[in-house]
Design a protein around this nucleic acid. Structure first.
Length: 565
RNA sequence: GCGCCUGUAGCUCAGUUGGAUAGAGCAACUGCCUUCUAAGCAGUAGGCCAGGGGUUCGAAUCCCUUCAGGCGCGCCA
């Protein structure tokens, strides 16, 4: 609808130019929007205001020219009027709105989908927490955002691959393995203490005990040809630690997988950093970049010239010690994504990594891609409130509230919904008590309740033997509240496109809230099932459409749409 | 010191990419269940959009600057 109004105005302006009424050289962008004030019609444009200074005319004059040009056109609005300083407000005929419902019911769960993405392959990488400990609440936010964004983009017609990058190599993995090894030594009453920079969390002790009960430890003793545990503990560290690194990594990763699965997140691929080295991808990408002339040696180390692309200093990819930095595999990973055919790459990071954005953007360009092909969304950290007080969290010290605990306490729906009520770069306070409460304080129930109410209504009509016919007279829906609801419904595809373009799924939660609010109000004020059967049909038709939209939107957020509450 | 993010109602946050009179939830106060679900509805009150300057028909939104808070600035991971 917007497009047709835009096109209409455009042609009128061009006609006015040929008639000598206007003299612009190039047409400016024609701003068209839905006004927030109802009396301003359904759609409005400020083009007359924008054009006025260039034309040397008053905005009202230009608005009148446009209005005049409209007269001969074959589009029927209920009303077109000039308002305020020169806005032109269009009001559609009611028939236009009434038509919408048929479309919604016909499309059902596909209502809201669009071709915006044109099947473009997009890689969405999110969470990617190091397998050194369980997921905490901050990861939950990234998970909710990444998954909802993926759903959203799919709805908007993109082809999405969800991906998790596993940092399963490097010194931190050794540290992890050593942490486990030391816990095992302690378990066998050996007097060793865990260094401060190692992983202190209780979960490492749990893994140690697990290794004993599952007999995995015995197997390792056998493989290393040690006689017993004591013998094993005398062996050189570098020979035994890889076993523990592997076990710890697998065990933790298994937990991460389970948590995410339970949270409703399924990845298309779990990508191992280690595999990049094993497949020679790191070496090959570096030599490729070297050919392009962006690599150089200095002080015995190998550097990527990221300053060529706006970074404030160049970055080391291989240390003097010959060991690669994490940056090196990051380059290979990004290159790999594009080599797999993704046209666009979206990364979701914790905001504490924002300093890495310029260098990754540089990498993209050094690889010969446009910087816009990489979107990095920074998620602000979550402040967890328990009994109204913030809970301090530190991963290394092993002091944190895990995602699992949060889900156990508040449930998946509430957790996901709350994470998605904020823009990604806005701070988020997560109040455990509020999230747990099954009351109006909890926004998720407000929306779910709207859906349950509609479902309940249809259970009631079934009992009463009222069966909704395939076609109904939607022209009976003339209450202002009914038209507002229809306009909300009609607006849904635009909300999807807007959210998809801006990568902001939180807009959907706000949209849903407004929708639910108008439904609750309508539901309270009017009765759907009345003595007038035709009217009852029409209202049921409206509510059925509404239920469809709520369900579709909740599905994008990854929140269930209950039939009963 | 340099860079990034944030600053909107008592609290938590939206604000459709520069539009018309700045919104919602919570908290506070007043009402509404003999009705298809009260996890709901109706209403009252609450604002120097951190401060200052600029850009223009028009700014919470863009630019400059000051202040406040958070984060980041390694051949760490």
């Amino acid at each position: 609808m917007k497009q047709s109004v835009t096109g209409l105005i455009k042609s009128i302006l061009e006609e006015a130019k040929t008639n000598g009424l206007l003299r612009f050289e190039t047409l400016p962008l024609i701003p068209v929007e839905a006004p927030k004030e109802k009396s301003h019609g359904d759609i409005a444009t400020s083009i007359a205001l924008a054009l006025a200074p260039r034309e040397g005319k008053r905005p009202l004059e230009i608005a009148k020219i446009i209005l005049k040009g409209l007269e001969g056109k074959d589009i029927d609005f209920e009303k077109v009027e000039i308002a305020g300083p020169g806005f032109i407000n269009f009001t559609f005929r009611k028939e236009y709105w009434h038509e919408i419902l048929n479309d919604v019911l016909k499309k059902g769960e596909t209502y809201g989908r669009s071709e915006l993405g044109k099947g473009i392959d997009v890689n969405v990488e999110f969470v990617s927490a190091n397998p050194t400990g369980p997921l905490h609440i901050g990861h939950g936010r990234g998970a909710a955002l990444g998954d909802a964004l993926s759903n959203l983009l799919q709805t908007a017609g993109y082809k999405i691959q969800r991906e998790y990058y596993i940092n399963d190599t490097g010194t931190q993995m050794e540290t992890l393995g050593r942490s486990l090894w030391i816990r095992l030594l302690q378990l066998h009453n050996q007097n060793v203490s865990l260094p401060e920079n190692h992983y202190q969390g209780e979960y490492i002790k749990g893994i140690a005990r697990e290794m004993v009960t599952t007999r995995r430890l015995d197997e390792i003793i056998k493989i290393t040809k040690a006689r017993d545990f004591f013998d094993l503990s005398k062996m050189p560290e570098e020979e035994v630690i890889p076993f523990f690194t592997d076990y710890a990594k697998e065990s933790i990763l298994k937990g991460i997988r389970e948590d995410l699965e339970r949270f409703g997140v399924r990845y298309g691929r779990w990508f191992s950093e280690k595999s990049l080295y094993e497949d020679g991808k790191v070496d090959s990408v570096l030599s490729e970049i070297k050919e392009r002339g962006f690599l150089y040696e200095r002080d015995g180390a190998l550097w990527l010239e990221t300053t060529r692309f706006g970074d404030d200093k160049d970055r080391v990819v291989r240390r003097k010690t010959e060991r690669y930095t994490y940056f090196a595999s990051d380059i290979a990973y990004n290159n790999n994504k594009f080599n797999r055919g993704f046209k666009r790459v979206i990364d979701i990071w914790g905001a504490d990594h924002h300093g890495y954005v310029p260098r990754m953007k540089a990498v993209i360009q050094a690889l010969g891609n446009a910087p816009e092909t990489l979107n990095i969304l920074l998620v602000q950290l979550v402040t967890l409130l328990k009994e109204g007080k913030p809970v301090a969290m530190s991963t290394r010290a092993g002091e944190f509230v895990t995602l699992k605990e949060v889900i156990d306490e508040v449930g998946v729906d509430a957790a996901r919904y709350i994470f998605l009520t904020r823009r990604h770069d806005s701070h988020l306070e997560f109040d455990l008590e509020v999230a747990r409460r099954q009351s109006s304080e909890n926004p998720v129930y407000y929306v779910q309740y709207a859906h349950a109410r509609i479902a309940s209504l249809f259970r009631e009509t079934a009992v009463r033997g009222i069966i909704l016919p395939e076609t109904v007279d939607t022209g009976l829906l003339n209450l202002p509240e009914e038209l507002d609801l229809i306009k909300d419904i009609a607006n849904y595809p635009e909300v999807i496109e807007g959210s998809a373009l801006s990568l902001e799924p939180h807009r959907i939660t706000y949209y849903l809230h407004g929708l639910a609010s108008r439904l609750h109000s309508y539901y309270y004020k009017y009765r759907v099932i009345t003595d007038n059967l035709e009217l009852t049909y029409a209202r049921l038709f409206l509510l059925k459409s509404l239920g469809i939209v709520i369900k579709n939107a909740l599905k994008i957020l990854g929140v269930s749409a209950p039939e009963k509450m």
